Simulated scan of single mutants.
Amino acid sequence: MARGETMSQQDEQPPRVVIRDKRRIDPTSGAARVPAEQEPISARPAQGDPRETVPEQGEQMSEQFSETPADLVDEPVGGVVVDDATRQLAERTEDLQRVTAEYANYRRRVERDRVLVVDQAAERFAGQLFPIVDDIERARDHGDLTGAFKVVADRVLGLLEGLGVEAFGAPGDPFDPALHEAVLHDTSPEVSEPTATTVLRPGFRRGDRVLRTAMVGVTDPESPAPAAAEPASADAPADEQPGAGPAAG
């Protein structure tokens, strides 16, 4: 009876589980391991060696939970070891540089468009004030720019000055087709070049941009400068050259 009970207890014992560590890197020392098939026979543990049957406490985890899986091991590329984290860092750095350059270009475009919109609005507003300025100048010529009207006129002219708009066109200025619009024409010996002698309407410009040309009367020189006489050709005979008299007898 005791013998039967002993055999029953032996049959009920769970089978022994043996865990073999197949990791290529030693988690403790960090050194590479040599596969069992490549390990010399002398270095292999003898049958029944406790190293094979009783693994250490830190080695009792499965291969899928290894601290250094095989797919994350550094791989040499061009003689330099590059891991996955380094490659991702390089890619993210390139993305950041590209986004930074695109944002800088966007800011420049926005600033350029903003300046353009402001300039266009200022020019449109100034163009609406030009007829009022013409009336002010006519009143000034007739001596009517006095009292409250003069105060209003000064404020209007101050608006143009604040927008950076300046008037041009004064009697005696050389005629420039890009700045002047000629509506009258005469000649005079007192000028040596086409000159705007009469200003019927002043012009306005903002910086290098002409907003309105000046309406002027142009005076040209009365007689243009004579053309220089062409020298006599050296191949012409002496008797045909000017000033040559008949040969002495």
Rank of each mutant, 00 (worst) to 15 (best):
E75N: 08
D74V: 08
G164R: 10
T28H: 05
K150E: 14
V118M: 14
F175Y: 15
T53M: 01
Q88G: 03
E63K: 02
V183Y: 01
V54E: 06
P224Y: 00
E94M: 05
R124N: 13
P50C: 01
V77G: 05
G30Y: 05
A85M: 12
Q97S: 11
P14V: 13
G127W: 00
R124S: 14
E123A: 09
A225S: 13
E181A: 08
L129Q: 07
P14C: 07
A248D: 08
H142Y: 06
R138K: 14
D71T: 13
E5D: 03
A46E: 10
P242D: 02
V165E: 14
A43Q: 08
A90V: 14
R109K: 03
D95Q: 12
A32R: 13
T86R: 14
L200N: 14
S66N: 03
E222C: 00
L160I: 09
A170S: 06
R33H: 02
V191G: 00
A2W: 05
T28I: 09
A170K: 07
D235E: 12
P55A: 06
A247V: 13
A238R: 12
Q128Y: 10
A70C: 00
Y103M: 04
A32Y: 11
Q64A: 15
F175I: 04
K150T: 03
A36H: 03
Y106I: 06
A178W: 02
E63G: 02
P40G: 07
F130D: 10
R20K: 06
T53Q: 07
A228T: 10
G30F: 08
